[in-house]
Computed example of a mutant assay.
Amino acid sequence: MKRIDDTMGLMPDVAIQAHPYLGAALDWVGMDGIEMSVRFDAGDGDVQRSSAKVGAFVNLAHQDRRGIHMSRLYLLMDEYLSARTISASMLGYLLRAVLESHKDLADRARISIRFDQLIRRPALRSEHSGWRAYPVSIEASLCANGFRLDLGTDVVYSSTCPASAALSRQLIQEQFSKDFEATKPLDHAAVLTWLGSEKGIVATPHAQRSIARLRVRYVDGAPLNLIALLDRVESSLGTPVQTAVKRIDEQAFALANGSNLMFCEDAARRIQRALDADDSIADFQVRLEHQESLHPHDAVAHVSKHTGAASIAG
């Protein structure tokens, strides 16, 4: 009986057969949503293995070719991503291998990798800590203009409205005027008790869960340091959401919100300043959403590096 391998050369491959009248080259052809295991170091030396969704694409430069070698794409993704830790250099090697496997068909390649990275974050005041799952998206491409690599993630934070805070303070002042006559001397103990009562906080400013969707492009040779990026952005905002929370942590979070009143525009400028100060970042785009508790719609702002160079979205 013949081995299966002995018959492989006889099997037709209609995808690569020439068809002179197909009519056009194609920008990108490939697969998306490939289920893959990946290894990633977020910047703390802890290489985690995660379940990822991967996209792999090449252009189809020859107008007379019907298709590409999708099995070659899949096997290369598995060979590199399953066994090697994601880095800029590794992704460069992978993209060159993809183009070599399609040298008769393509001159551009790109891959996308999407997964969640677990990172342990400390509590604000107590000795506890907890896990945050940060979404990670990595986009890498290789073409005539060279190698490009973008890293994306989300930062979730709390935003307290400055206008609402001012209106709340006014109502507290009015309540104070009702409860303490201007013509009578103030009693320290009475005022202290009043401040600790519900009358002392008759109105509260509204706050909402907010999201900064980050996409950064690093300079050549810079590591994909996710934790450093998160630390920089979360510190600039002052109110990232928490994991383990005791009362002392909740009180510290309330203080952080009161000390970091911000409109969506304020948050955008804070992040812009923080990322501009990072020499390892060549370009960035950020979309901020303040998911309003007052309105049924969101407040949104976009901000970028404004270098005058080609946009990161290009």
Rank of each mutant, 00 (worst) to 15 (best):
P122E: 10
I138R: 00
K103Y: 07
I227R: 01
I34S: 02
A133S: 14
A83R: 15
D220P: 12
L22E: 08
L142F: 06
M8V: 13
S159R: 00
M8W: 09
I138L: 15
P296H: 10
D220R: 12
I119G: 01
T7D: 08
Y157L: 06
H295N: 14
R217V: 01
A18K: 14
M262G: 02
P162C: 07
G258I: 04
A106E: 01
M36Q: 15
N145T: 08
Q48N: 07
C161T: 05
D13T: 06
V38K: 00
S259L: 09
R114V: 12
S168D: 10
Y134M: 08
F263A: 04
Q208G: 13
R213D: 10
R215Q: 14
A133Q: 08
N59W: 02
C143N: 15
G30P: 02
L75K: 10
A313Y: 13
S137T: 14
S293E: 11
S112F: 02
D46S: 10
D187P: 01
R273W: 03
R169M: 09
K305V: 04
R66N: 11
A61D: 15
A182W: 03
D276H: 13
H128K: 12
V300Y: 08
P122C: 07
L105P: 03
Y157D: 03
L288S: 00
G45F: 05
D5C: 04
S87H: 11
L261F: 11
T153H: 01
Y21R: 11
K246V: 05
S293P: 09
